[in-house]
Design a protein around this nucleic acid. Structure first.
Lengths: 225, 225
DNA sequence: TTAAAATATGAACAATGTTCATTATATTTG
DNA sequence: CAAATATAATGAACATTGTTCATATTTTAA
């Protein structure tokens, strides 16, 4: 049974959470202070501590909500493209666009310090699997249609995940590349390197043969038809 | 000409920088406070402001030194392996190992907030090209020996860069993967996906063919011989 | 030696997170 | 309904941050 107390407590939490979310989307983490949030919610700063262990806790519970928002944002951008690899690419681009639009949320998802990892395992998991969750349906579609081998999917997911996060980190936090257009260009190149490009020509990606005593030669060629 | 004043000023800066570096390698960024650094250097906290604009400035000038240290660390780990792709892989693994050993330095390189991007362009560049700088000689070796096509090198460098940073970010900041061994396993998989594995069998990485109206089919196959 | 310039210093301020005794409100009980 | 009790909201207070600035100290110049 849900007691009145529980309802009221959730409502109070909601006020603080909404205020925190608004600040995060606008100014980012640096704008979130316990006094700032409290004022926006219409309460005294110390009242927050009746509902959240500390300010870290408050900030962290926003993540699940934002993951939902991210999923909607991405679905909206990708719905028009054809199912399969094409839409998969659009989903990844959409995921990147979301964090470019809300850099504060990238900070929250990937850069923010987490106090106690153990107690926040569920939320951490939401973060770590956020891209996978957004792409899952499309991966299944691709597997079912034989567009990708099931054995490769986990590695490909991982490749996209690390690439996207690395690219976003450098761009949002280190201004590399310096311009948005070059950043998007890099993104396209990277996505095509992982999921395949539609260039109608075959080309060799890496071709390694060398003669160390114990090391076998290896030849890798990527053919795009 | 180098004035006495300049020498003395550099010496003073050096005291604060050394103290900051020691703290960064040990406790990480959270341990760096202006009072903490000053005490370790044997001066009053306000003296720092006679030599550095702010605490961000102080922290940032440590980066070039650490890049040197990183390069030595990596070279030491990779020197025994055969030149070419094999050593290239070892260099990347060494780069990762460096930041696993000193998580505070990963924080400094990639996570720390930068006040004024414009004035720190040189240092930012040291960061963004740190992996490339470490691998440059080996890339040239590979190109000269025809192990990789020159046209592909920039993309491969970028792939390694984003992958390494994404992987490190998730592992050091989000405990993903949860164990060190699984993390290293992921690293190996990713490196092999980019630079080629030595598995003596051909395998298909991604195989996409689908029938959107305007989208061409694409087939990518990676053959390792 | 004395005047002047340079440099080191801690007091002071604003902003931060957090705790806690007190006040105000809501609920229960007589 | 009134009083007693429980619950919740509050701001004072503390510790810690970065930063500024007037003052004290040291070094340099005359």
């Amino acid at each position: 049974m849900v007691t009145n107390k529980a309802i009221q407590e959730q409502r109070m939490k909601g006020y603080f959470i909404q205020a925190t979310k608004d600040i995060l989307k606008g100014e980012g983490l640096k704008g979130v202070s316990v006094r700032n949030v409290a004022q926006q919610a219409g309460y005294s700063y110390s009242t927050i501590y009746n509902y959240f262990k500390d300010v870290n806790d408050l900030v962290f519970v926003c993540i699940s909500d934002f993951q939902q928002e991210c999923a909607s944002f991405v679905a909206d951008q990708a719905q028009s493209s054809a199912p399969g690899i094409d839409r998969l690419k659009k989903l990844v681009v959409g995921y990147v666009n979301f964090f470019v639009e809300y850099p504060g949320l990238f900070e929250l998802f990937y850069l923010a310090k987490v106090g106690d990892f153990g107690h926040k395992e569920a939320t951490i998991n939401v973060i770590n699997s956020s891209l996978d969750a957004i792409c899952e349906k499309e991966w299944n579609y691709c597997i079912a249609r034989g567009m990708v081998k099931a054995a490769d999917v986990e590695r490909l997911k991982a490749q996209l995940r690390y690439m996207v996060i690395g690219l976003l980190l450098l761009y949002l936090n280190r201004r590399f590349p310096a311009s948005y257009s070059e950043f998007m260009n890099q993104l396209t190149i990277q996505i095509n390197a992982i999921l395949g490009s539609e260039t109608p020509s075959g080309q060799t990606v890496a071709n390694t043969g060398q003669g160390g005593p114990l090391v076998q030669n290896s030849l890798i060629s990527v053919n795009i038809k």
